[in-house]
Amino acid sequence: MEHGSFTNDSHASFTLAEEDHTLANAVRFMLNQDPRVTLAGYSIPHPSLECVNVRVQTTGDPAREVLKDACQELMLMNRHVRSVFDKAVAEFKVKQARLATEEEKKTKAEEAELKKQRDLLASMDIESD
């Protein structure tokens, strides 16, 4: 919901229902990165109300558009975070699997070596007998 004026759309407050610091703080951060914004902030009117008020004042552009852009940008950034994260996890898992197989190979080789030595010892025993 927008609370603004009819004559000047560069200053407005928005009430986001069912939101809290989680979204509002991120949106405030995005707004403040925008050079068109002169002031941006948010507040929760009462802890038992499930809404936040976001204030946006711009140098002239409509506040509604600027807020929309901020959300859009936030969404794109999230998408990027997700793709980078997924890639990092996939890489990590591949590395982990490789390490595990290497470890397995190593223990197997060690066991084989041990067995060979034991066999050798055993055969020596027989000879000594």
Binding site: L16, L23, K68, L74, N78, R79, F85
Partner: peptide
């Protein structure tokens, strides 16, 4: 935990989408 984190990022995306839809 890695799936949980991706889910969390998706939820934030959905929130943005909802606000954009509300404002349009």
């Amino acid at each position: 935990p890695d799936v949980l984190f991706t889910e969390a990022v998706k939820i934030l995306e959905d929130k943005c989408e909802r606000v954009i839809a509300d404002l349009s």
